[in-house]
Design a binder for these strands. Sequence first.
DNA 1: AAACTATACGAACGATCGTATTATTAGTTT
DNA 2: AAACTAATAATACGATCGTTCGTATAGTTT
Lengths: 211, 211
Amino acid sequence: METRTDGRLVRGDQTRRAVLRRAVDIASIDGLEGLSIGRLAGELEISKSGLFAHFGSKEELQLATIRAARRIYADAVVEPAHALEPGIGRVWKLSESWLDYSEQRVFPGGCFFARVTHEFAARSGPVHDFLVEVDHEWIALIEQYVTEARDLGELTGDPSQLAFDLNAFMESANLSSLLRDDTAAVFDRARQSVRTRLEAAATAGTRLPWA
Amino acid sequence: METRTDGRLVRGDQTRRAVLRRAVDIASIDGLEGLSIGRLAGELEISKSGLFAHFGSKEELQLATIRAARRIYADAVVEPAHALEPGIGRVWKLSESWLDYSEQRVFPGGCFFARVTHEFAARSGPVHDFLVEVDHEWIALIEQYVTEARDLGELTGDPSQLAFDLNAFMESANLSSLLRDDTAAVFDRARQSVRTRLEAAATAGTRLPWA
DNA sequence: AAACTATACGAACGATCGTATTATTAGTTT
DNA sequence: AAACTAATAATACGATCGTTCGTATAGTTT
């Protein structure tokens, strides 16, 4: 039902995509609760009921919005690192593409997941659960890349600890950049923290990817 | 108007305090938008209009809630470190009391400011501006303590960079603890990151405060 | 062209939002 | 006790929330 035999989209799916593209942008600024159906329909100049019919409930719209954001995130952040071979270079690239993703405002409100994960962190329900799952995926990915590099002898120490630190630098840079005027300085600082931390964990003789 | 000559609270101020104590708890979970006047009045079993009269507008309630949270934050986090003399020990204490504050759930939704600052980070208006101000205050305090320690010869390196890293570990631990089952492990990891980072910045011969 | 299905729309629902107005109660002052 | 003030409540407003229902249109299939 999603695509026709020739691969072109059917009418309803075009609408759905347009809705979700707008939804992720709104939610990155105003959250998944600030994302109201009436407002979304108004901005897209379609009827509220027609939009609603695509999702059936507000919660399903929120879940679909998270899925849409995850696809965009995978393309912008994960793919560039995934294309590289394992090693410290891949770990570094993941950090860099994440910081680029935040700095370039792939979502207008900065990192979509930073915004909505904080929104639902202390709640319960399907949306919370889904966001927890996405976060675990992400942390597991960092740990995997770090572990690969350690197995290659390029990094030492606890992979979980390094993953925690790198992720902390990214999240913190994202928020900080939204609060300060000089966003470039914020990201420079975060990149410095990433490099210093990787340098501290790198084994002697390992060529640092940014050198 | 706030207190009587004998220091006891007048009737209206008692209510105001009760409202704000509940408000900060709600907002730490559901944010300052999720904090609705009707809900707040319902939980406290007072009238919506009576509650509203104390603040005059939703925005003023939100600002008052932030001020109330800042007072609690100052007592729980800043004061224990402020009581110490300058040096690396004070920097360490600030990190420790922050992690305790998050772990002990002084606010039920974890750090109040992590929740609401993300909520308003990409918006504009008085609430955003106030939260930016509070964040700057906080970062400036860390930098001040670090600078003191550097002036005493206990720490080296860029104070802003160290402040960024320490703050990143705290924020990240807070969010992570809300998403994972084993919160104790999360905070242990964060404390480890803080210690390692301070150790890296400490000058040779400086006694580490946790040793 | 007819039959059918998918998609979108308009109108309305009850609930709740923030806010304003008016009244009532409680506390203090004289 | 009377007068006054501060605090709380009752009621209602228009707007918007998520949701439902019935209907119209557009696209595909026969």
